[in-house]
Simulated scan of single mutants.
Amino acid sequence: MTGAAQSTSRPPRIAITTGEPAGVGPELTAQALAGTAVHWPGAQFTVLGDAQLLAERARAVGVDWAALIADGKRVRVEHRALGAPSQAGKLDAANGRYVLDLLDTAIDGAVAGTFDAIVTAPLQKSTINDAGVPFTGHTEYLAERTHTPRVVMMLAGTGKRPLRVALATTHLPLKDVSAALSVESLVETLRIVDHDLRLHFGLPAPRILVTGLNPHAGENGYLGREEIDVITPALQRANAQGIDARGPYPADTLFQPRYLEEADCVLAMFHDQGLPVLKYATFGEGINVTLGLPIIRTSVDHGTALDLAGTGRADAGSLIAAIDTAVSMAQHRRAG
């Protein structure tokens, strides 16, 4: 991406994919962008989605969409036609390829430098798979489309001292986690986290606290040897490369203020080790960031909420936070 070499005086250009049309993505996008003049006065947004759908869902939640996009400068719509008419809360496999088209357009634009960052509203994996396209998730798809061998999922809360949790493994059955961990993979994960916290978040010397895998971080080998055989050697190697990674800490005690005050990020070994804590602490304003990509991508930390779609009861807080972070990351990257 060419954004790092571009002038920092140009407004950041953010693409937003509106995700599953039967879900809350379209209406949350409208609600979030209704505050553009206040939240992001210098940013420009391209909303990817069906123009009629966006207007209908905006109207349903009381947003004057026509006025918002009237001048086409602050907010513009890049129309992509639905595969079939969409009803809030009703999935239709005919729209699976439409959802992927939105994502492909955003990725291609970011790689080409047309967009400085992309923000993704939630999609429904089943709709895409039912359309005949094997699909594991946003993170894996972004890695494949950008030819990135390793990416890292990091969820984060906003605030003066944000809580960030990155994952050494993502969507794996628990029985497969231990075999998926290696010294080499952990060192590479730590390298990506360290690099992107410096580049995108303006942290000159990130401090990363690393959990153990087993209860009590293995209890000196009595409850498992992964800490001794894999995690500690990985930390030693990472430290030798100038990465401030500490641990392994027992996961049941690490998530306390006395530890987190010293941390810029926590690296957890598996999905449900770190994310329940983060979501409890930040739900409604938590976000998902994909580290290691050649482009910037942020997202909400929730799903399509089909039961809330079209009702106006869904909370746009997470999407607003994802946009905030995308704008900030783009500015840091261009300044760096």
Rank of each mutant, 00 (worst) to 15 (best):
G113L: 00
G83Y: 04
I287V: 13
A4I: 09
N239M: 03
A156C: 13
V193H: 13
D301Q: 06
I14G: 05
P250R: 10
V75A: 14
A309M: 05
E56L: 10
R97N: 14
G35L: 05
A326V: 00
D324W: 13
I107C: 06
K125N: 10
I243S: 06
A156H: 10
L53A: 08
G89S: 07
V75H: 15
V111L: 15
G62T: 02
A251L: 08
G25N: 04
A112Q: 08
A43S: 10
L275G: 12
A314E: 01
V277N: 01
G137M: 07
P204R: 05
L181D: 02
V151H: 11
D108H: 13
L172F: 12
A81G: 10
T304Y: 12
A37D: 09
H79Y: 14
H79N: 15
F201S: 03
G113A: 02
A55E: 02
L203H: 10
G247S: 04
L123R: 09
V177H: 12
N288W: 10
G96D: 01
A30S: 11
G224W: 08
V119D: 00
A251V: 08
L197I: 05
L213Y: 04
K160L: 10
G274I: 03
T105F: 02
Q331W: 05
Y98A: 12
L91M: 15
I295Q: 01
T8V: 15
R334P: 10
A55G: 03
R297E: 00
G242C: 09
F283W: 11
G113I: 00
R237W: 09
L91H: 12
V151K: 11
I118H: 12
A81D: 13
P248Y: 07
E188S: 15
A51M: 11
P204Y: 02
A316V: 07
G62F: 06
V165W: 14
G284I: 12
P206N: 02
P21V: 04
G49N: 03
S299R: 09
L186A: 08
R161D: 14
V165L: 12
E27T: 08
L172P: 15
H39V: 00
P12A: 13
P21M: 01
F135G: 06
A238K: 04
L100G: 09
V327E: 04
N129A: 02
E227Q: 08
A43L: 04
P257F: 07
A37E: 08
A281L: 10
S178F: 06
E56D: 14
P41F: 06
T8L: 14
S9M: 09
M153V: 02
A66C: 05
L163N: 13
K73G: 05
D176V: 06
A330Y: 04
V75Q: 14
P11S: 09
E78I: 03
L254T: 04
G247V: 02
L293Y: 10
E20M: 07
H302L: 00
D196M: 06
A81T: 13
L155I: 05
F283P: 10
G274H: 06
T211W: 08
L190I: 14
V193K: 12
V152S: 11
D324A: 06
I296F: 12
L293S: 08
E144S: 15
G83H: 04
S7I: 12
Q331A: 08
Y222N: 11
R59G: 04
E20C: 09
A180W: 14
A121L: 05
P85R: 03
V75C: 15
L203S: 03
P257N: 04
